[in-house]
């Protein structure tokens, strides 16, 4: 699966893989909230009790899915990121995490994928809020292949899992594994952790810098061991490049490095109201999340550290 050339979107791959799971496993259930229904028309007709489009009622979608889990099913809930994570946050917390139930929440519409639809359709808070929940697993794949790998690896493992799909993808898939950081390259002057679709622009940003680059597709649980090993072999300058509100991984990085005198810098979507309309790439430019913008922030951070040592 690794190193394949991209052939489909993460959303298309979700349609294919979830349909396959529904057909293969009678314990798979799917709850939709009027989004992506065209992928599952046949499945809804064939399995009306376990493949359900509830309509535009995301709180009920999540609670209903928990009810299916109580009966031994592995429910998958799907909608646009803010509507399936922020609106029913309490249902995910109480009905899945508190009850100790497994299920998968899959979103589309990462951060400003719906870039012309305004702040109501932006979902940059999804990963930061969900990773506060006990037992919640959070995945941010960078390609459709990685999405499929992470879905299959976490499917029916007994814990609630959030998988964030995005329009933006890396050009090449990596051999990702749930719960593990992938070592993309090694360097001496610091360690960059690039999350999901931020990887390739980050690699471009640091192409001529002597930095280790780790690739994160699992945000929770965080792979502290790999980060510790990487930091032990490089200067303790750690930069995290995230495609959601910046800083979500900072507590995990700080905890992993509590015995090391380290510097941490988070680059991601700033906490500000985005009131301009344009494609995701235009928002990236505005927010400095292009390869050039990321490079500037990383070099500034490294120079600040160098000055501090003088």
């Amino acid at each position: 699966m690794s190193n394949s050339i991209l052939s489909d979107s993460m959303r298309d791959r979700m349609g294919k893989v979830v349909n396959a799971l529904i057909e293969r496993d009678p314990q798979t259930a799917l709850v939709l909230a009027d989004i992506s229904t065209t992928y599952f028309r046949d499945a809804m007709q064939k399995h009306p009790a376990r493949v359900v489009n509830v309509g535009i009622m995301e709180q009920t979608a999540v609670s209903l899915a928990a009810g299916l889990a109580l009966e031994g099913f592995h429910p998958i809930v799907h909608s646009i990121a803010p509507f399936v994570t922020e609106r029913p946050f309490e249902q995910i917390k109480d009905d899945f995490c508190y009850q100790g139930l497994g299920g998968t929440v899959i979103s589309i519409g990462a951060s400003y994928d719906y870039g012309t639809d305004g702040m109501t359709h932006h979902g940059a808070a999804d990963v930061p809020i969900l990773k506060t929940l006990p037992s919640m697993q959070v995945c941010v794949p960078g390609t459709a292949d990685e999405f499929e790998t992470l879905l299959r690896q976490t499917y029916n493992n007994g814990a609630p899992t959030y998988i964030r799909t995005s329009v933006q993808q890396n050009g090449i898939s990596r051999p990702v594994n749930f719960g593990q950081l992938h070592v993309e390259r090694a360097g001496q002057d610091g360690v960059v952790v690039a999350v999901g679709p931020m990887l390739e622009r980050t690699l471009a940003a640091v192409a001529d810098l002597d930095l280790t680059v780790l690739y994160a597709t699992t945000i929770a649980p965080f792979d502290a061991d790999t980060l510790q090993t990487a930091v032990a072999r490089a200067a303790p300058n750690v930069i995290v490049v995230e495609p959601y509100y910046e800083g979500a991984l900072a507590p995990d990085v700080a905890k992993a490095l509590q015995s090391v005198a380290s510097r941490i810098h988070a680059i991601g979507v700033p906490r500000q109201v985005l009131d301009r309309y344009g494609p995701p790439e235009r928002h990236d430019e505005e927010l400095g999340l292009t390869a050039a913008g990321i490079r500037t922030r990383i070099t500034d951070f490294l120079q600040m550290g160098a000055r501090a040592r003088v």
Partner: peptide, 17 residues
Amino acid sequence: GHGFPMAIGVALGLKAK
């Protein structure tokens, strides 16, 4: 407001089984 929609999921689960 959580238990009622959960009950719908349980009812659907029973039907599916």
